[in-house]
Design a binder for these strands. Structure first.
Lengths: 225, 225
DNA sequence: TGATGTGAAGCGGTTCACAGCC
DNA sequence: GGCTGTGAACCGCTTCACATCA
């Protein structure tokens, strides 16, 4: 157990471990060793142990980890014990898609409001979620207890939107705009670039990648942002 | 110019550079230095130079890079000069969302077909794209020249689907199922985990993260899979 | 015996700093 | 003078290997 800074790569993996443990729990498996977990889900056992050890000694030597207990620990560590409300800025194609997708799970994350600048969209609803004027983000966010902002606007507008939501007190932002954003201070920013991901595949398909041999996938346990 | 293996992190950044250059071209900017590009888009100038130098000497010392010429180089390097057809497996919430999202750009990536196992969905259309029986993936993929498979099925089914599409000759797979997949040989696999990304934000919002100070965002130039 | 927790080694990517060239 | 291209230093994450303990 160490109190040092935890890498984002580690917390990403904790989230994955949690999902793997849930699958095991569904099968009524009570105990699992890091080696068994690794084998089953294509992970690395040493890394599992090290990741977990940052937060406590959850295992029993010679036995392994208690599945249910470890799940509870991870839920607590990740802060998933309560519902987080999400506001999505940009009610276009992507914003609608994300509303639709995240709309499925109301327990840990709940899309509370959409925002756009298009007067034709304001007042409409997507999946039951109302679209508000983006300039009212601060008041709506406060009223609805929105903690997470999702940016789903065109690249040109993303930095502005980011600064507006952080100015409104948001400390966790997920950016889907395909452009690097500059963050500040205490605000956590994650960028998911759906275009870059596809273009990486195109590179592999083009002749260039073949010249460089295969590209084995390290899996979602590997390096990310 | 080196012929060695190119890291996926590098190709991801090339994709980002390409988008940044497009924005500059829209402003009729003809030449840009690595320092100017870095400043404008929150990148690292040394990294830009190093990334580009893997593929050639595109710059002019004392001047910088020609915007249009560099764009053309990147398009060629990434293999974006032609349309790639995409097949999405899983016509649920996520599959629909992705069809809707990727449906916008028909030039570089085109969603050619959807696949599902639900008899009620087979034969229907989403955004004009027909849903086929998943077991017909091999023949449809061949007929429609599908090169990229997008996995949008539940976690439990993802590994099976992956093996089926690779058996059908697909060499580029994008996985949205929140589970690590095991890949083999020459197949390029990218996993985008929309749940993990959100849960990382929850961690930051919970007390735990604050104990560890701020988490400055290195931007989408940083480490990924 | 068997599996955890962890210092130490190893590895890959980023950043520095400067030689080389326009 | 200014900026690229690049070896070298640096840094952080992963992997190894083993002491430790049920």
């Amino acid at each position: 157990m160490k109190a040092g800074k935890i890498s984002e790569l580690t917390t990403n993996r904790l989230s994955i471990y949690l999902r793997c443990l849930t699958l095991l729990a569904d099968e009524d498996i009570k105990t699992v060793s890091s080696a068994a977990l690794a084998k089953r889900f294509h992970l690395n056992s040493a890394q599992i142990r090290k990741d977990l050890a940052y937060f406590g000694e959850f295992g029993v030597r010679g036995v392994g980890y208690d599945v249910d207990a470890l799940r509870d620990h991870l839920i607590k560590i990740l802060g998933l014990g309560r519902t987080h409300r999400v506001g999505i800025i940009g009610a276009g194609r992507l914003g609608s898609a994300l509303t639709n997708y995240y709309g499925g799970d109301r327990s840990t994350f709940e899309v509370a409001a959409l925002f756009d600048v298009d007067p034709l969209k304001i007042g409409e609803r997507i999946e039951g979620v109302e679209i508000f004027d983006a300039k009212h983000f601060p008041s709506i966010a406060k009223r609805d207890n929105i903690e997470v902002a999702v940016i789903a606007v065109p690249a040109e507008a993303a930095q502005d939107v980011f600064e507006q939501v952080t100015a409104a007190g948001i400390r966790a932002v997920m950016n889907f705009a395909p452009i690097p954003l500059k963050t500040i201070g205490d605000v956590k920013l994650k960028t998911v670039d759906l275009t870059t991901s596809l273009e990486g595949l195109a590179y592999h398909l083009s002749g260039a990648a073949s010249l460089n041999g295969n590209n084995p996938e390290p899996g979602p346990t590997g390096r990310r942002n």
